[in-house]
């Protein structure tokens, strides 16, 4: 494997966004790119990352390899990279280590690190292709704000989407709160628009603790997409350039 990223910031942000949710992960490398799928310990949330080969330049992967990496270790090494450093990942066939180099674009500084790999027996779940009943695309900062504000009151949020819009509601010991958003187009800045596409109304309840965690990815993208269908896991997607993405799935809370 040899994969060169123009901006180390991308990998730094991805790892920052997922390291509190999952600890030891296989980075599955093949000629289409680098993928990661991992569940949190309680099997309530799942992270699915895809960094397409087009996000790297150059990208070369001659043989499929799984790089088992502890994210705490990776975070320690990535802390040594500046955001605008050029980052190159390298691994041999049947590797013991993954090699990372950080090159400063404006100086002759080159740093190089090896991280020991681990054997990780990871359970891969098949995620069915779902036609979601409601898809909401909104500014990622808006979603962060809603989850943060409501998490101050309650552990759970009810998300209701109808043709009127989407409503986030919570009930807690001190009282209750809600935030409603309507579909709207911001003509001056499309990134601030709220798009709602609905085939049938949905109402689901989710743990705010996890949603707050997912919002650590907000720095990766101006926009976030929420996909919901009744009684199935929520998909929260942060799109990256070149069709790469960071997705989170969250199992709902059901019943009373």
């Amino acid at each position: 494997l040899e994969a060169r990223l123009e901006q180390a910031a991308m990998l730094k942000r991805v790892v920052d966004a997922i390291k509190d949710l999952v600890q030891d992960c296989n980075f599955d490398c093949n000629d289409s790119g680098i993928a990661l799928q991992a569940m949190d310990n309680s099997h309530v949330a799942l992270v699915s990352m895809m960094l397409k080969s087009e996000s790297f330049s150059p990208f070369r992967c001659d043989r499929n390899i799984a790089l088992g990496i502890n994210l705490t270790s990776l975070t320690k090494v990535l802390r040594a990279a500046q955001g605008d450093d050029i980052l190159t990942l390298k691994a041999e066939d049947a590797p013991d280590v993954v090699n990372l180099t950080f090159e400063s674009p404006e100086s002759d500084r080159l740093s190089e690190y090896d991280i020991k790999l681990m054997d990780i027996d990871q359970e891969h779940l098949g995620i069915p292709d779902t036609e979601y009943a409601a898809t909401i695309t909104l500014p990622s900062s808006e979603f962060s704000r809603i989850t943060r504000d409501l998490s101050a009151l309650s552990e759970s949020v009810a998300i209701e989407c109808t043709k009127e819009g989407v409503k986030f509601t919570c009930t807690g010991d001190i009282g209750n709160g809600s935030v409603s958003l309507r579909q709207h187009t911001n003509v001056e800045n499309d990134a601030k628009s709220v798009d709602i596409s609905l085939t049938e109304p949905v109402a689901l309840t989710f743990s705010l603790k996890y949603l707050v965690n997912f919002c650590k990815a907000a720095g990766l993208s101006d926009r976030v997409r929420l996909c919901l269908s009744n009684e199935v896991p929520l998909l929260v997607e942060y799109g990256l350039s070149n069709n790469s993405y960071l997705r989170f799935y969250l199992a709902p809370k059901i019943g009373d």
Binding site: M39, S42, H43, V44, A45, L46, E123, H124, L125, G126, I127, P128, S156, T205, S207, V232, P233, Y249, A251, P252, K253, I254, G255, D256
Partner: peptide
Amino acid sequence: GPKQQTLAGFFSRP
């Protein structure tokens, strides 16, 4: 309150 589900019930094991 409502009960937290896990993903195993929704996503299939290979």
